[in-house]
Write a protein that binds this DNA or RNA. Structure first.
Length: 469
RNA sequence: GGCGACAUAGCCAAGUGGUAAGGCGUGGGUCUGCAACACCCUGAUGCGUCAGUUCAAAUCUGACUGUCGCCUCCA
């Protein structure tokens, strides 16, 4: 399996730290509002990465935090006149609902920054002791970037150039910093803000320290994969490396994975531009499986553009897969042929080749777009070779294969059994009778009526089928 | 200014040296009372432009054009 590593800027063969195990840490959202569709991309990407590792038989430990103390949360709390934890608790719950609706597996651990303050104080203390951090007059603790010779190795930044670029910041504030690139580990509280006691001052942690601490606590000093959006490369992940490696003296993460952005009108989504969608907005119009399928239809390192047209295309494409799997399921239950037919052996070979294509795509830095193409080809194969004249063994094989592969992508194809609805069944029976009587006007009227109820009918050889839209 | 990414049919999108996957959409057809589903057919003599390397380039090299991102909170 090859993974593109931001640090080395190349695809590298994946070798776990410990045989058969994978430790993954993904930076989670700051919970000051409902998550937006941009937040959803890393969630879906890394959930799929995780699912593939599980499929491969790895013992995966997946940790993703919620940042629940932050300026934006405090602002939202002030605006609503409530405590910050009211805001963060609320949006963590909402975020979990969205994740569940996108079929994102809950992390093995979802640590909260506010519950890990002791660990942060310990790490900051250690950094100060080792000369990697210092306390300013007002009690702010800064990381001393000059003390870490490798600072900039992830983002490939030249520190001298960075210095000149940051000159303006130096003038505008934080005058106590030794160097403009030094960053905050601990800062004093302001009135009305949540705070914790420390030997430096009453205050709260900087943003970067939490991930170093939580990663260390739940996964150890060294992890296999650290992931997040590409905007986190600098400074967030660069700073995490500085903090963690200065403490442990060991390499922090072996592979740095970063997803590209989800854009609107080919530009980064921004509130000010007015083009801003929450996952909840999309859920009002589509099953979030569609959003998931849409996101995975492009490679995770490519920017992806969001639009209504593309969502429609994704919806239709996903529908084709779902319909195909559904036909297989019906077929394998209805067919009278048990044993595999001679020609089906060849079809199964084709299916196996497509299974290998799927795996090869995923092995190559999680090329989900290519993997999906293998699924479409499997659906086509099933549609052309399945049906009442195919054997139960063949269709069961195809069904299981498609369910397994789509499950790796987190796409649910096993449709839940609809509860029998007497009213709908009665209308369908009435329409069937009308059709028998050649009263097509009445039959169509009933079909139209059901459509208004959100029920779409399909006349098949095995009888009338219906589904909700 | 520094660093980086991308440019493939109407749209989306794989392919990174051997002669263009897949999907959506369009048009035609088969099936069907009609519709839907499904199936068949339909699509780039060409992969931003111009040079170069090579027996061979969408794929490598250079230049150019265009788009976007990071360098500040940001998924």
């Amino acid at each position: 399996m090859k993974i593109y590593d931001t640090m080395s800027r190349s695809k590298r063969e994946f070798i776990p730290l410990e045989e058969g195990k994978v430790k993954i840490y993904v930076c989670g959202p700051t919970v000051y509002n409902l998550i937006h569709i941009g937040n959803a991309r890393p969630m879906l990407v890394f959930d799929t990465v995780r699912r593939y590792f599980i499929y491969k038989g790895y013992d995966v430990c997946f940790v993703s935090n919620f940042t629940d103390v932050d300026d934006k949360i405090i602002q939202a709390a002030i605006a609503e006149g409530v405590d910050a934890d009211v805001i963060s608790t609320r949006y963590i719950e909402e975020c979990k609902k969205d994740m569940a609706a996108m079929n994102v597996l809950p992390a093995d651990v979802h640590p909260l920054a506010t519950k890990e303050i002791d660990g942060m104080i310990d790490m900051i203390t250690e950094l100060i002791q080792k000369g990697h951090a210092y306390v300013a007059k007002d009690g702010t603790v800064y990381f001393r970037t000059d003390s870490f010779a490798e600072y900039g190795k992830l983002s490939h930044k030249n520190m001298d150039e960075l210095q000149s670029g940051l000159r303006e910041l130096k003038v505008s504030g934080e005058a106590d910093k030794e160097s403009p690139s030094d960053f905050v580990l601990w800062k004093p509280k302001k009135d009305g803000e949540p705070y914790w006691d420390s030997v430096w001052c009453k205050g709260r942690p900087g943003w970067h320290i939490e991930c170093s601490v939580m990663s260390k606590k739940y996964l150890g000093e060294q992890i296999d994969i650290h992931g997040g959006g590409e905007d986190l490369v600098f400074p967030h992940h660069e700073n995490e490396i500085a903090q963690s490696e200065c403490c442990s003296g060991k390499s922090f993460a072996n592979y740095w994975m970063h997803n590209a952005f989800l854009n609107i009108d080919n530009k980064k989504m921004s509130k000010s531009a007015g083009d801003f969608f929450t996952v909840r907005d999309i859920a009002g119009k589509y099953d979030l499986q569609v959003l998931r399928f849409f996101m995975l239809s492009a490679h995770y390192r490519s920017p992806i553009n969001f639009s209504a047209e593309l969502m429609e295309a994704a919806k239709n494409g996903l529908e084709r897969i779902l319909t195909g799997v559904s036909k297989l399921k019906d077929g394998m239950q209805a067919t009278q042929l048990a044993a595999l037919l001679e020609e089906e052996k060849a079809y199964m070979q084709e299916a196996k080749a497509l299974h290998l294509k799927f795996e090869a795509a995923m092995e190559d830095d999680f090329n989900t777009a290519d993997a999906i193409s293998a699924i479409f080809e499997l659906v086509k194969l099933a549609n052309t070779t399945g049906g009442l004249r195919a054997s139960k063994e063949y269709m069961t094989y195809m069904y299981k294969l498609l369910v397994d592969l789509t499950d790796i992508l987190g796409i649910i194809t096993k449709k839940e059994e609809e509860k029998p609805d007497a009213r709908i069944e009665a209308l369908i029976a009435e329409r069937t009778q009308a059709k028998k009587d050649k009263d097509f006007g009445k039959a169509d009227a009933i079909r139209e009526r059901l459509k208004e109820m959100g029920i779409v009918l399909e006349d098949t050889r095995e009888g009338v089928k219906w589904k909700r839209i």
